[in-house]
Structure formats: C-alpha cells, structure tokens
Nucleic acid binder design. Structure first.
Lengths: 196, 196
DNA sequence: ACCTGAACACCGTTCAAGT
DNA sequence: ACCTGAACACCGTTCAAGT
C-alpha cells in the first residue's frame, strides 16, 4: 500500500472555483471538476464528501480570499483620503471593499455565501474581523453580535446583488455611489445609539 | 386542430414552487414538475421556455405574493402600536414584513430573488411600492432610485439569510430583534440627510 | 492509500410523431 | 393546439476492483 496522491483538496476546490468563474455555478459538476484535473469523478470523493461539501469548500475559499484581501487593503482603503473616514472604521471599510472585490472576481460563486450557514474556520475569521472593527468603533460588548450580523448581511447582500447582475441596468459609477451611500448608512447606524 | 389544455402556466409555476417548498430547490426539475402534474417533462415547454424561465417564473410568483401580503398587512402592521412608527413609514414596514413572511413560507425558493435580475411586471410592482413609501417619507425625487435599491437590498438580504438558515444558530426572538434593529437603521438613514 | 470502470437512476432538451 | 415517445449527452453516487 502507499501511492502518491495526484490531486489534493485545494486543487479540487481551486478547479471548482475556476470552473464557476469561467462557466457559471451550474457547470460546477463532479464530472467536470474531474475532467479539469484529468481524473475520474469518483476520485474527488476522497477529498470532498459530496457535491454539497464541494460547494461548502468553495464558500471556504471565498471567505479566505475576503479576509486576505481585507488584510492587504487595510492600510490603503480605496478612496480613504477624500472620504474622510474616521480611523476606527478603517478595518470595517477595508472588509467591505474586500467583499465587493471578491464578489466581482467570482460573481457566479459569491451568492453561495448568502445561502450556506458558514460555520467553518474561515467564516469565523471573517466574523472576528468585523467584531474587531466594531469594538474599535466603541460599540458596547452586548451589541457586538447583533451589529456584526446586520453589517455583514447588508454588505453581503449588496455584493451578491451586484455580482448576480441585479443592478445590471445601471452604470458602474452609479453602483459605486450606491455602495458609498450604503457605507454612510452603516456609519450612521453604528454611531447613533437607540432612542431611550 | 384544437385540444383542451391539461395544464397552464400558473399550474406549472405553482407545482414548481410547491416542490421547492417541500423538497428544496434542487428537486425542482422538469421531470419532477411534470410528474406532479401527471404529464411528461416535454409538455412543460409549451408553458415555459426552459428550466431557467421556470425559475424566473418562480421569482415572479414570489414577488406577487410579497406585494399581496404587503397590501393585506398595510392597515395592521405587526407591532405597529408599541413600535410607535411614524405614519409615513407604514407602507415600507408592511413591505418589509411581507418580504420576511414570504421568505419563511418559501425558504428554498426565496434566495432566487437575490440571484435574478427581476425585470418582470411583478418586480416593477414591488419596486413601485417602495418608491411610493419613500416619496411619502419626504425623500427628494433624485434620491428615490438609490434609496429604493439600498432599502430593497438590505431587506432582501436579511430575509434570504434567515430563510437559508444563515442565522440558524440563534433563537427566533433574537432574529426578530435583529430585524427590528435593521428597520431602525433604515429609518435613521432615510431621515438623516448627507452631511454637506 | 488512492484511483479506475462499470453501472444506476436521474437530469435538460431535441425532434418527429400522434390526436 | 397540445401532448407523447424515443433518444442524447449529461448528472451524482454506489460498489467492487485494480495498483
């Protein structure tokens, strides 16, 4: 016994994501992913439990990409200068832009983020990044969880809509301004405590 | 020539939606829908152009349900009394609750709303309802379109997330409070003009 | 340990044919 | 006009078998 592995879990997920990028989510298929890697469909089952687990793996890859991009953009948020962001919100804005970036790089796969629970380590990392930003914003500890859910959902929903072409009737400049306005809304909500 | 129709477009869409409700979106299948109606898969092609058009039809049905529920809840918004909503926002709040209601009735199908452009008459009707609410809220005409996109996206994203089980780790009371807070955020954004 | 081959019950969609 | 039947190239997944 003992045989050198031809494919790895990462290779499988990368091939699946690439397939989604090039030909849409509906062509992410055990047969097609196998074809990409020069392997029979059944060889994939050693690395993912099922087609569903494959899609969960794609979600994992997307979340990893989001947090990586966010980290690299942390010092240089697009439009930071003219937008006069307060220092506390830099990490949140970086994460928002990273989500939108990722949505545009993987428009077909991105909506999976809204559709799947996401309890993987990568999901936790993304959530923790939002937590850190909110804490720095001065939010009381007992509103962190709720604020995280609402902020993440708002940005995710926007990015997924854009990626899926729900705003396709409008120019990119219009959508960019929409996004800036969404960030203004979130800033407003986070800095205005509930009425007594 | 001339033969009495056995099935109609509405029957096809209703069967498809029912199938999604009972067994998930992945079991909405030309073969399965045909089976539901006692007909071969090919008989469906007279009423919908393709599988994709069938899914668009489901979106149409969902949007129709949203606007119908909103209209019936318009006078009696849940929690209107203790929430002290201003009169102007009643239609918007009714629509928000209608969306969440519809998401819970059709959790598997609902995420389609975020994924498909929606340029059908039913989509226009839903959009017009939001427009009317925003106008009544006193929004200037040139911010209506943007506000409509952001409000709709926020509520849609929340409802889709809940339906898809993204908040499954939390009690219904927690999610209800999340939703109330989301409405507070939107109210805040709509009543606070951009800084000069 | 890792991959293959054959097989099964399904898909979406076409085309020609029935009534 | 509306539906059927046979057919095609695909699916996801199983099981036993090869190295």
């Amino acid at each position: 016994v003992g045989r050198t592995a031809q494919i790895s879990r990462e290779a499988v997920l990368a091939a699946a994501l690439g397939l989604a990028d090039e030909a849409g989510l509906e062509s992410v298929t055990m047969h097609a992913v196998g074809r990409c890697l020069g392997v029979t469909p059944m060889a994939l089952y050693r690395h993912v439990d099922s087609k569903n687990a494959l899609l969960d793996g794609i979600v994992e890859a997307l979340l990893t990409e989001v947090t990586e991009i966010a980290a690299s953009h942390y010092d240089a948020v697009p439009g930071a200068a003219e937008d006069s962001h307060a220092a506390w919100e830099a990490p949140l804005v970086a994460l928002a832009y990273a989500m939108r970036d990722t949505a545009r790089r993987h428009p077909a796969a991105f909506p999976l983020l809204l559709t799947r629970p996401a309890v993987t380590p990568a999901a936790r990392a993304a959530r923790d990044a939002v937590y850190a930003g909110l804490r720095e914003a001065g939010l009381p500890a007992d509103s962190l969880a709720r604020a995280e859910r609402l902020v993440s959902t708002a940005i995710l929903g926007f990015a997924a809509s854009e990626a899926a072409g729900r705003f396709a009737a409008h120019d990119k400049t219009v959508i960019d301004a929409d996004f800036a306005e969404l960030l203004r809304w979130l800033r407003l909500a986070l800095t205005t405590p509930p009425a007594p």
